[in-house]
Simulated assay, not measured.
Amino acid sequence: MATDTDHKDTSGPTMITLVLITLVMLFLGLHWVRQSFPDLASYADDSACVDTRVEAGQTLHTRDILVSVFNAGQKSGTASATMKRLEKRGFVAGDTGNTSVAGGVRGVEIWADSVNPAALLVAKQFGAGTQIVAGHDQLGDGVVVVIGDNMRRMSAPVESLVAEEQAYICGPPVLQ
Rank of each mutant, 00 (worst) to 15 (best):
G97Q: 06
S47A: 12
A41Q: 13
S100L: 07
I110S: 14
T10W: 12
D137Q: 10
M25G: 04
G94D: 01
D6E: 03
K84M: 03
G29E: 09
P157K: 15
R89M: 08
L18W: 04
Q138S: 14
D64L: 12
G171H: 00
R53V: 12
I169K: 02
E159F: 14
G104P: 09
L18M: 03
F126Q: 00
D51H: 05
V146N: 04
T22H: 00
S42D: 02
I132D: 12
W111G: 05
M25R: 01
I110K: 11
R153H: 10
R89E: 10
F37G: 11
K84F: 03
E159T: 15
V54M: 05
G171T: 03
L60V: 15
T82A: 11
K8M: 09
R106T: 09
Q74M: 07
V67T: 13
V146Q: 06
D64P: 07
V146L: 03
D39N: 12
V133K: 05
D137S: 13
L161H: 11
M154T: 12
D51N: 08
R85S: 13
G171Y: 00
F91M: 04
A79F: 08
S80R: 05
A123E: 07
I147K: 00
V101Q: 02
G77A: 05
K88H: 15
T78M: 15
V24Y: 03
A81Q: 08
Q166H: 01
R53M: 12
G107E: 12
T82L: 13
N116K: 03
E165Y: 04
M1R: 09
A119Y: 01
A79S: 11
G73P: 03
G57K: 09
F37Y: 13
E165S: 14
L66H: 13
I147V: 14
H31S: 06
A134H: 02
V54G: 07
M154Q: 11
V105P: 00
T96N: 13
A56P: 15
G77D: 09
A2W: 06
V101H: 02
M15V: 06
H136P: 01
I65M: 10
N116R: 14
E159S: 15
A119W: 04
V145K: 00
R106W: 09
V105Y: 00
T99G: 09
R106E: 13
Q58E: 15
G29R: 02
A93C: 10
L18Q: 04
I132A: 07
I21F: 05
G57L: 11
L30Y: 07
V19Y: 09
L120P: 00
M15P: 01
P13Q: 11
V69G: 00
R85I: 01
A56C: 13
G140P: 08
N150I: 05
L40R: 06
M154D: 02
Y43D: 11
E55L: 10
L121Q: 07
H61C: 06
V33L: 15
Y43M: 13
T10E: 08
M154H: 06
R63C: 10
K88Q: 14
P172K: 00
V115Y: 09
S47Q: 06
V158R: 13
G135D: 08
D9K: 15
H61P: 03
A2K: 04
A112H: 10
G29A: 06
K75D: 02
R106Q: 12
G12T: 13
Q131I: 04
L120M: 10
V122T: 14
S47G: 11
G73E: 05
V54C: 14
P13L: 10
A48Y: 03
E164T: 07
H136E: 11
L40P: 03
